[in-house]
């Protein structure tokens, strides 16, 4: 008993005090910025990208990007730079596409569009049922980390529930394949209205490295409206928590 108390005192307070202001190590690859002036149109970045996230006009689709950094390393002119800015969630799929005009401020101003209705319904408490549909366990571990003593998402009233019946929506990871398609839809239908869908991680948003797999079955995502996209491979807990907090603001 005393040992346990001693451990408790020794550990002190582990929670990140201000989640919204927290900064990640500068090595972290978050929001990419593109300097079109330095670009020599060599297209090396397009060729090296494993998920076709870079378009011909050198815009980067964060919904497809796995943040591997290969393009940044490959570029002979340093025209692509991954910043450590981690608040990269968005309520619209289009806003995830970064072009040379995008700056951190411009992205922030358009990325997460909250509504009065969402705020009224879920602003003080949001319970989510997590469904992994082919997730490799990377995003799943990061979602678990959201609830650990460091990130402690529960303090904001955001929790993961055990049953879809107790949830206000689904938080989905993985590329969504045939064998899991039915269970995913069943879970969604079991959530009482009104409900939201959050896609977590590049696999869920676009299929990620599995986008060419012949077992993808993503019609669920066409059938129902997605409310929030949280990119990353895997998603960083700070991206998740801040994304949801902004969405509920």
């Amino acid at each position: 008993m005393f040992d346990t108390l001693k451990s408790r005192i020794y550990q002190g307070d582990q929670a990140i005090p201000d989640i919204e202001k927290a900064v990640i190590d500068e090595k972290f690859r978050g929001l990419p910025l593109i300097d079109r002036q330095s670009c020599s149109n060599c297209n090396e970045c397009i060729d090296v990208c494993p998920t076709n996230a870079i378009n011909q006009d050198i815009s980067i689709d964060m919904g497809k990007c796995i943040f591997c950094g290969d393009c940044e390393r490959k570029c002979p002119n340093n025209a692509i730079k991954f910043t450590n800015f981690h608040k990269i969630s968005s309520t619209s799929r289009e806003s995830l596409i970064i072009d040379s005009n995008t700056t951190q401020e411009s992205f922030e101003s358009i990325a997460v569009k909250s509504t009065k209705e969402i705020k009224k319904l879920f602003g003080k408490s949001l319970k989510l049922r997590q469904v992994s549909a082919g997730g490799c366990n990377g995003c799943e571990m990061e979602l678990n980390a959201c609830s650990n003593v460091n990130f402690d998402m529960g303090r904001f009233g955001i929790d993961i529930t055990a049953s879809p019946r107790h949830a206000d929506g689904l938080i989905i990871t993985g590329p969504v394949m045939e064998n899991m398609a039915k269970a995913l839809e069943d879970a969604y239908l079991s959530v009482p209205d009104p409900k939201i869908i959050i896609l977590t991680g590049t696999c869920a948003i676009s299929g990620g490295v599995f986008q060419k797999s012949d077992v993808l079955k993503r019609d669920f995502l066409e059938k129902y409206k997605v409310d929030l996209y949280i990119p990353g491979c895997p998603v960083h807990p700070l991206t998740v928590i801040n994304g949801i907090l902004d969405f509920l603001k």
Binding site: P50, C68, C136, G138, G174, N179, F210, D214
Partner: peptide
């Protein structure tokens, strides 16, 4: 339930696929 056709994505692929190998099991 988690079948993603991973092995076949390595096959007849002209590019190296370390990114795919990283996602065989995310842990």
């Amino acid at each position: 339930y988690q079948h993603r056709g991973t092995e076949s994505l390595f096959e007849n692929n002209n590019n190296f696929a370390p990114h795919l190998a990283e996602s065989i099991a995310g842990d």
